[in-house]
Simulated assay, not measured.
Amino acid sequence: MRFQIQKKVVEVVSWGLVVGWMGLIFYLSAQPGEQSADLSGGITELVNEIVEQVAPAAEFKMDEVSFFVRKNAHLFAYMLLAVLTLNAVRRSGGHGFKSMGAAFILSVLYAISDEVHQLFVPGRSGQVSDVLLDSTGALVGIVLYAVISRGLARKRQTEEANKKV
């Protein structure tokens, strides 16, 4: 009975993290264009400072760095969304490729809804290219999750086999 309650709590927390991350994506997408550009600009400046310390002789254009930061933010946001979603689906009893497919579809549908949402935000626009980038991030997240999960499962199996010997 206690194990079942703990399992249910983990499942609810897992889905809570998915919803929370979706909420953060929604919040950031609801920022007007100017405010979003300011946030990207601040992150770009931070990246610039780090690069200057690591490689002072490096030359690059700020608009290129800004583009890189913005696009990688999409990739990272949906990579993490897919990881959180796949974890929640598996905690809810999903297995194998079906759970991966469900996590991918959920992530892509959210990416589409996010770009549609941005159509209604002043100074923002919805981009099909962003949905493709978000989908790529989701796919990367799912592959990483699967590779790490498989590695951990093999390690556990090896440890259990060694205990029996």
Rank of each mutant, 00 (worst) to 15 (best):
K61L: 12
M62A: 12
M62C: 07
D63F: 13
D63T: 09
D63P: 10
E64Q: 12
V65P: 14
S66I: 00
S66F: 12
S66W: 11
V69F: 09
V69A: 11
R70I: 06
K71F: 12
N72R: 10
A73Y: 13
A73R: 13
H74P: 03
H74I: 05
H74M: 04
H74V: 07
L75N: 03
L75V: 14
F76P: 00
F76S: 09
F76N: 03
Y78K: 06
L81G: 04
L81P: 09
A82Q: 04
V83N: 00
V83F: 12
L86H: 10
L86Q: 15
N87I: 08
N87V: 08
R90G: 03
R90Q: 14
S92A: 07
S92R: 00
G93W: 08
H95Q: 14
H95K: 12
G96Y: 09
F97S: 00
S99C: 02
M100E: 13
G101C: 03
G101D: 02
A103H: 02
F104E: 06
F104H: 06
L106R: 06
L106P: 01
L106M: 15
S107H: 04
V108D: 14
V108N: 10
L109R: 05
L109S: 14
Y110Q: 02
Y110N: 04
A111S: 13
A111F: 07
A111L: 03
S113W: 10
S113P: 07
S113Q: 11
E115R: 09
E115W: 14
